[in-house]
Design a protein around this nucleic acid. Structure first.
Lengths: 125, 125
DNA sequence: TCTTTACTACGAAATTCTTCGTAGATACTA
DNA sequence: TAGTATCTACGAAGAATTTCGTAGTAAAGA
């Protein structure tokens, strides 16, 4: 499953807001980008045909639901991204990401916990 | 600077092998993908027009050099990726990356060091 | 009821990216 | 020298993605 960039924008809205009409999604999109209503509509129709979204007919408009999980999709995108941009080195990616973005204490703790887990798996001593 | 997927493949070869002719790049590409020689040639010509590559004429063939740094490009791609795929949360990305890929002890140590740095910056106590 | 508004369906244009065929030039080889 | 191999240049087809205009329909409001 490789959503295009435009599809991903729509997915982000649906993941964050839950099931929505085209109008609702579109109102979110135009906050950051200039795009026509029928463009959003068309994209969501295509996504439905592809099986990424389903829809239920609510009165006159349709309510769209996401059929793929956010984490599952991120996982797949991440795998591909590590390959194409980092020649397969997830570690390099992690290091760059940590270097660029500041994380909160809680987040750092979470990452640290994960690291410890891996350390133990690698060479338990 | 947003290289396309095909461009990125070529960049990877050049970053890893250093300045190369079209033939050399192409010989690497066909190890993993079926593509015609003139396709590789055309792409590299386009990249040169865009200013991603420069070339020096060596005898009858041309030798191409990358004009953009690998880390700099990764940084830019990563920033975009975090936005589009992880809604801006680099931490989520790091956690997923760590969960998915095994790292060596040395790599883990490097990441750990980075974490400590950030911890100190955040709340030095 | 008539008009305006909001929605879906759909075709097709526009854009971007990728692919390759063909032509022309130059070097190498028998 | 004739023929073959290898290279660049370039146009254009093909494919994938994104965009939007137009038409049709149903609801809401005057």
């Amino acid at each position: 499953m490789k959503p295009t960039d435009a599809e991903l924008e729509i997915l982000q809205v649906l993941w964050s807001k839950g099931p929505s009409t085209v109008r609702q999604v579109h109102d979110e999109l135009i906050k950051t980008r200039d795009v026509g209503y029928t463009t959003t509509l068309k994209l969501m129709q295509i996504m439905q045909e592809k099986g990424i979204l389903s829809r239920t007919e609510d009165a006159r408009s349709h309510v769209y639901h996401v059929l793929i999980g956010e984490e599952e999709t991120q996982k797949s995108l991440l795998g591909r991204f590590v390959e194409t941009a980092f020649r397969g080195s997830a570690t390099k990616l992690v290091i760059q990401a940590l270097g660029q973005h500041k994380a909160s204490r809680e987040e750092l703790d979470e990452i640290r916990a994960l690291l410890n887990q891996q350390l133990n798996q690698n060479s338990p001593d």
